[in-house]
Nucleic acid binder design. Sequence first.
DNA 1: GACGGTGTTGAGTC
DNA 2: TGACTCAACACCGT
Length: 264
Amino acid sequence: MGRAVPELPDVEGYRRVLAEHAVGRRVRQVRVTDSGVLHGVSPAGLDRALRDRRFTEPARHGKWLLAHTDGPTLLLHFGMTGSLHWAEEDQPVHRHDRVLVRTDGGELRYRDMRKLQGLRLAHTDDEVDRVLAELGPDAAAVDVDEFVDRLAARRRAAVKAVLTDQAVVAGLGNLLADEILWRAGVHPATGTGALDRARLGRLHREMRAVLARAVPAGRVPDRPGWLTGRRDDPTGACPRCGGPLARTRLAGRTTVWCPVCQPE
DNA sequence: GACGGTGTTGAGTC
DNA sequence: TGACTCAACACCGT
């Protein structure tokens, strides 16, 4: 665990860490071992804001985790390498544990090797909204009509780039986008304008299906029959047709697809 | 020891 | 408008 790049299902898993362990607990102390992960707040300010506050039901939007309390809200983003762990205080601290939130019954640990994103603090609902302002609807919640409308509005762009654009729908990363496109039989470089409503609807259906399986697992599973898991094998074969997979760089990311199942 | 690859996000350029 | 590069960062394999 903690290996995969965090996408919506992973962050949902971290939300469950909060929901199962932190809700109802009172913050005793916040320790920051690397202030490079804090944005807009100092280590002392974070401790001051959260100390004696009680965690309430957490939420998630896209790849953002919202750790609500009976005071301010801590917003966490996991970048490429972040994770969230619940530990007993005497458990050894990992070298990449950057923020430790000690409560009256265990410790919440924000771990991140590369500090590409990090933590923000919001004192009001308005401040929370401001952080999330540029995001589209959550990928696990958006209905088919809105999904189709939002993709269709970006008709000239490659569908892979649109799916991973957090302003269109929030939560999909590189692995999920490739998995969804592969399942839907859509070539990743296709302009969304070239996709009719039926194809866009198919993308929505596959997105929901992939998320329905990945969210309970807390990750994009690399089980047989999924594209994920074959993608790191240079001689990987398509789980559907057995043919060789293709790989290229699209929108700045490694993109894997099947030339047979996903024709141009 | 240097370098390229890894992929999220935002800034900047064409 | 979209495609592109770079920079942030740390680690790994070559």
